[in-house]
Design a protein around this nucleic acid. Structure first.
Lengths: 233, 233
DNA sequence: ATCATTAATATGTAGATACATATTATTGTC
DNA sequence: GACAATAATATGTATCTACATATTAATGAT
């Protein structure tokens, strides 16, 4: 009657999750201590700990020292989102990637940039406007600002050939990244750059990165009409 | 000269990440084996393993048995997204939450529903149209379909009082969740329900959940104009 | 009763050891 | 040389032990 192999932490996790699914434990309920669960299932406490850690990361349970483990009362939908380099994204969909530099200048930062970086002082940054193409057609329009203080090397890069997107992601790993999604109506300028009708609804992905509290770059990526962002799973 | 406390796995992770940041190890480079790193830093292999696991989860390195650990050549922007219950979201912003059931009927599923669930057969599901309000004003319009096979209990719930959103999240934990984000132009019907101008750009959050390959619900949440979705961090 | 101090307790973390597993490298056979 | 069998190896997992840490509960002084 004993199981052939011993329990893995994923088995334990699935077992506990199943108990939550089948309402043995309901939102708000307190789970037994790790040690008791371990004894029940016949495994080590560290195995239960590993399982619980995963459930906690997934937002299914909440753990507190001394307080024990509790099924979350207000479960959230928690997912992982991967945003690849645009070139990779296009290629993965079987398209031919293209890139076009539209403008490049050192300018006083726009209000949305200082808002994203929480900067109070007016500052100059490298402002890059570029277009990513899929199969010769506009795919993503990026309005990017790069801190020349944090990433001075970018000034030596020929952005007509290498996209800032790619260079930064390869050469400037970040320690913090904020994302923001929303929809805009294409104004005349944006519409013409993206070859989209004026007024069409466009998904915007705004991303800001820091390295230890020092801003690296912030980008407003305006996607072509019909663009969808998916989680994988 | 020795450190007062011993190294924690987060220290190890930060140390290795710092080496990647300062280009000691570049994208594509192979890192030493866990054991050597452990010896170097003066900690146990399990500590290095824990750190590496985290870096691997974060998409910074790639690990392969026998193959060793490698800095990812094509780093992705990977973040965690939390989507709370709408009521919680409104309340957290200091607003007063309201809810309105617009319609409720058992109907043949719409094409986008069968697409989301990858169903080939025409099926009937519970179709619920509802409006979430913040401070008396339209906030999110949800067009939801619920499988009465997987969640028959929903038929007994008075959806005029309790939102399906809330009931499901509390009573039907899922094992799989797919998300999809895109922008739409408000058509006349949508615009009037959301009290938004016709043609305004709206962010749509589409979410489908399963319990072990059996569809639970899919929802098209159309947000009010100006809505933004953020990652926390 | 109030508040600070102390003890108890459940989770968190580190270390050591042993074995599992996947993948690469090597060896051997034809 | 081609291909299968085998060995070597780096990560993955499980267990036990010991101690750290945060938080609650109990205790004691005022």
């Amino acid at each position: 009657m004993t199981t052939a192999t011993r329990l893995s932490w994923t088995d334990v996790r699935d077992h506990i999750r199943a108990q939550i699914l089948n309402r043995t434990y309901r939102p708000g309920d307190k789970l037994p201590r790790d040690e008791d669960i371990a004894k029940d299932l016949g495994c080590a406490r560290s195995t239960v700990q590993r399982a619980m850690q995963d459930l906690s990361d997934a937002g299914i349970v909440e753990r507190k020292r001394k307080g024990g483990t509790q099924v979350r009362t207000d479960p959230v939908t928690r997912t992982t989102l991967d945003i690849p380099i645009t070139r990779k994204e296009v290629e993965q969909r079987g398209g031919i990637y293209g890139y076009q530099l539209l403008s490049r200048a050192i300018e006083d930062i726009a209000p949305w940039v200082s808002a994203n970086f929480a900067l109070s002082q007016p500052t100059k940054m490298l402002h890059v406007d570029a277009l990513h193409l899929a199969d010769q057609r506009p795919y993503i329009l990026e309005d990017r600002w790069i801190s020349t203080e944090t990433a001075p090397e970018i000034l030596a890069v020929d952005l007509a050939i290498n996209s800032a997107n790619e260079w930064l992601v390869r050469n400037k790993p970040y320690t913090r990244c904020d994302l923001r999604f929303y929809a805009i109506e294409a104004d005349r300028k944006t519409a013409s750059k993206l070859a989209a009708p004026v007024g069409s609804a466009l998904l915007v992905i705004e991303r800001s990165t820091w390295i230890d509290e020092r801003p690296i770059t912030t980008v407003r990526a305006v996607t072509k009409p019909g663009y969808q962002l998916l989680t994988q799973n």
